[in-house]
Nucleic acid binder design. Structure first.
Lengths: 182, 182
DNA sequence: TTAGGTAGTGATTAATCAATAACAAATAAC
DNA sequence: GTTATTTGTTATTGATTAATCACTACCTAA
């Protein structure tokens, strides 16, 4: 086997870095399906194909695992919106488009964000706060750079409709989705 | 003591109807503070001044208690918006006003609604669905009766901003509140 | 060849809590 | 004044599950 440093090994090899990723991927799905408290670390482990205790070698506790999964979801959100290259008028339309795309490709991460809204846990709330702040700030700078008239108001409306969309999905109420999207 | 039927006795008397109300009032606060899963029936009981098992004489289980508390929160929301007597232009402004008032007078019920968004439990989700539907339908009929141009779109925007407001409160992020409110 | 690191497991536990059962006291009814 | 009903309590348990501990197998570098 070739000598390799760090995490740059082949994909199916079990480095702890790979395991972390696998666990996170499973955790997002399990947490989204059952909710933070009902989901068990055993379910996550089973999905990955490892033993339940091993999760605690890579994550300090269940809370930290959830926070890491949540951060992952926000990372994707940020990345998705960052990649939007559109100017002026089209920025809003294009942002909505990629958002809707993300709802289809990564529904569990959306559900996770909705769940985190209601969890009263300190660490999770902080993670949620910074996540929301990151998205808001990003959109504000993009809207401003695009020369949109009242960026603050537009971003606020964008976030409001985005959250209503999230909620419609989490509650399985398609009729609740923002109306002017069509 | 006068013989009375139903729940129309003096307030400090311990009829099961009164107890139900007391328990619900306490439950709203306890659930809002700790979240559905972390909150214990013992905490609710302590706040009322009764024993923990007695709660199960009046509510089948914890889930039913939460659902009853949630329904109560939506009942108030509905009542609040129903009482708005304003026509045309002013309906929206007045609706926002009473909503903001409710956020100050009954914050726990708002928090409860946000929490319920993320709970994956069947019964709770159904209750949340009908709650959201009731509010949406009510506002739609009011907006329509007031002769507002595109009632569906206006209601959707109203709901979106309302939910963002809820979220801003639950996350303690005042900056997240809809911008055009000021 | 041995010393050390990485990846992983099985067994267990300590704590928590919803829910039940069995009992008691007060109130109302006849 | 005795019976029935409502209102409540104490004691207890059954189930769940995050987290720890002690241990093994394997690889690799000197």
């Amino acid at each position: 086997m070739t000598k390799l440093s760090g995490g740059a090994r082949t994909k199916d090899e079990a480095t702890s870095v790979n395991r972390r990723e696998q666990i996170l991927e499973a955790a997002v799905v399990v947490f989204a399906e059952h909710g933070y408290f009902k989901a068990t670390t055993a379910q996550v482990a089973e999905k990955v194909g490892i033993s339940q205790p091993y999760i605690f070698k890579l994550f300090k506790n269940k809370e930290e695992l959830f926070v890491a999964a949540l951060d992952r979801a926000f990372d994707r959100t940020i990345r998705t919106f960052t990649e939007v290259k559109a100017s002026g008028e089209e920025l809003l339309r294009e942002s909505i488009r990629v958002y809707e795309q993300m709802m289809e490709t990564h529904p569990s991460e959306i559900i996770l964000q909705v769940q985190a809204l209601g969890i009263r846990d300190e660490a999770i709330r902080r993670s949620m706060q910074t996540g929301m702040h990151r998205v808001t700030s990003l959109m504000e700078s993009k809207f401003t750079a695009a020369g949109i008239a009242h960026p603050e108001v537009e971003v606020s409306t964008f976030m409001a409709n985005g959250m209503l969309c999230h909620i419609a999905m989490a509650l399985e109420m398609p009729n609740l989705k923002p109306k002017h999207l069509e």
